[in-house]
Amino acid sequence: MFFSGKTRAASAPSHPHTAVPTGTAVRICGLDKSYVGRKVLDSLNFSMQPGEFAAVVGRSGCGKSTLLRHLVGLELPDAGEVFVDGQRRDFLHSDTRIMFQEDRLLPWKSVLRNVGLGLDGEEGLRSARAALTAVGLADRADDWPAVLSGGQKQRVSLARALAHAPRFMLLDEPMGALDALTRLEMQRLIERLWLERRFTALLVTHDVGEAVTLADRIILMESGRIARDLAVNLPRPRRRGEKEFGRLEAEVLEWIMSVHGGFI
């Protein structure tokens, strides 16, 4: 199988805390999707190693979010296939969880019940509580979502994803609506939890700096296909302002801006 002994491919640098990857291997073959005649995914191919952290960047409308909806099983492709751990995937599966741009918490459930959504009984509540502790919000378990700040709500929705112990985590711009400081905190939290748990993570983002901070690989998408695939070989934790960080960020940004279809 994919998650055998060979730890992390050449694209992934060695980390100070190397845990055994529990993430899934993912392979996407020739994915096609059109909406009302417009091609959103155009025979898209790529694969991920178990436990890898990849970031997808690109202009709005390049098909990033559609790709995630296919991977999580909310949409079916017109053609092509998704394989997770070598098995064909065209349905919702409990090993895959997604974090959306909006928190999508149920306002009529307490924080703890939100995190425990889809989990049963005592066992479910226990893992919900553990996930809430992992994001540092154990003391807000009994509050309504309405009284939390935007950053706290997004942490609750991260906890909700973690409570299912996912092996493949999809992050659909989960930090897009947060202010700059909260966003930095959230990035550190996600990186820490990823290093601890070693799920396979795919992050869609507009923020190139965020992609460079978190990802082993940056995938540049352009009109439904992958245009470039860049390895990020920087030691973690990465800091903005380091020379190599800045160079990489500038390179990716330059590339995105140079893609045809700019406004200026």
């Binding site: 909310l74 919702l92 997604i98 959306f100 999508r104 149920l106 459930k109 889809g118």
Partner: peptide, 20 residues
């Protein structure tokens, strides 16, 4: 969007109805 979320988090038809 809440319905999508519920589906991703493993709620069946009845649970979607009851909880969302």
């Amino acid at each position: 969007r809440l319905m999508d979320m519920g589906r991703v988090y493993g709620l069946g038809r009845r649970e979607l109805w009851r909880q969302i």
